[in-house]
Design a protein around this nucleic acid. Sequence first.
DNA 1: GAAGTCAGTGAACAACTGTCCTCTCAAATC
DNA 2: GATTTGAGAGGACAGTTGTTCACTGACTTC
Lengths: 213, 213
Amino acid sequence: MSHSVGGVRQAQKQKTRQALLDAALGLLEEQSLSSLGLREVTRVVGIAPTAFYRHFRDLGELGVALVEEALGSLHAMVRAILAEQDAAEERIDRTVAVVERHVREHPAHVRFVARERRGGVRAVRHAIAGELDRFAAEVAEALKSQPVSGGWRDEDVRMLAELYVDRLVTTAGELLDAQEEGDEGAVERVVWRARRQLRLISIGRRHWEEEGA
Amino acid sequence: MSHSVGGVRQAQKQKTRQALLDAALGLLEEQSLSSLGLREVTRVVGIAPTAFYRHFRDLGELGVALVEEALGSLHAMVRAILAEQDAAEERIDRTVAVVERHVREHPAHVRFVARERRGGVRAVRHAIAGELDRFAAEVAEALKSQPVSGGWRDEDVRMLAELYVDRLVTTAGELLDAQEEGDEGAVERVVWRARRQLRLISIGRRHWEEEGA
DNA sequence: GAAGTCAGTGAACAACTGTCCTCTCAAATC
DNA sequence: GATTTGAGAGGACAGTTGTTCACTGACTTC
């Protein structure tokens, strides 16, 4: 590794870039992206306001970068769930448990996505929508290869996948609210409800074919 | 109406109060509440910034007032749907149609609720959550009195109601996005998907009892 | 018709915002 | 080892923000 391109320089840059992302994520716990200030972020990081421009054109661009970071970990996680081949019942319990764990480990990411999904910054909304779309496509692919989806039309598999994905994102948001209230009972109630709702959807899925197309 | 309390005075006050709400709602189409400025709002209305305090302590309080206004019309609407006694199939179509119409007639209200439901202002989030809770309770009451919910436990009826309500709010938000892109095809796709998702839930509901409790 | 109430005014405040410009100086290149 | 590059500093800019205070004057009350 003698004369590799970049080197110390790029590493340091990447480091403060990450610091900007972290600082922004922290500040976003109590406000939304469209009210976040550029100076506010740089102040936390400890750099001059103008240095911000070396990394992002504006806060919208930083927001888009946060989307990739936030959805990245979740993506890997859901992929893992989909790979398993449990029975429907255990799969639901396991899925909800994984979501709960994720919310506990990455609360700021979850909050960011839940909040900015319909937030005030167009570019970020689109980035999230796109990411969740790829998400739903992956879920659809997994659902399709399950025996339960025998003669299903592709569009129906897709709408089911989108129902699942949306439910999981919503559940994550609700879990976050419950969890930050410190009310552990509320958390349990959300988990219980999510499980039952997923089960109901799963039952609907099993009987979809017998009822008209 | 000779010496009624208040009179012209209170009427005028109420008028500028409404003007403040309208102005804020308009400005919120392109940003979120936590970035909305007090001066920004009064500038649109055409009054001095300080006059704002005669009506609201801060923008959070105005936000809460907007919640009541926004959910009010929707409330009456859903009540109307619930009162009908159609077959499940037609009821779904009618419900989605009513939601679509509502989004077309009150786009700003829908956007406000969808955005601030998980937005950066705690008081507003709580106000919306409370209102949607009362909503779900009403829906649950209606579902309970339907023959399909024979031996259902109350908590299960409730979780179903919440699933429905959340689905409708989400659909309204998606319809808004599609509709403001001017893409009428996208609107149709959202409608189609919402109908099918509701149908799937409805099927799950009918077969809920035969599967374990 | 006099006295009081109160929605809205307008000036002033300190604090803050995003962006421009020039500068520095350590790392990277040749 | 001289030259180029580019992340970050720091000053300055014109605007904007929320909140304070004393005020006006039309309406309400008695």
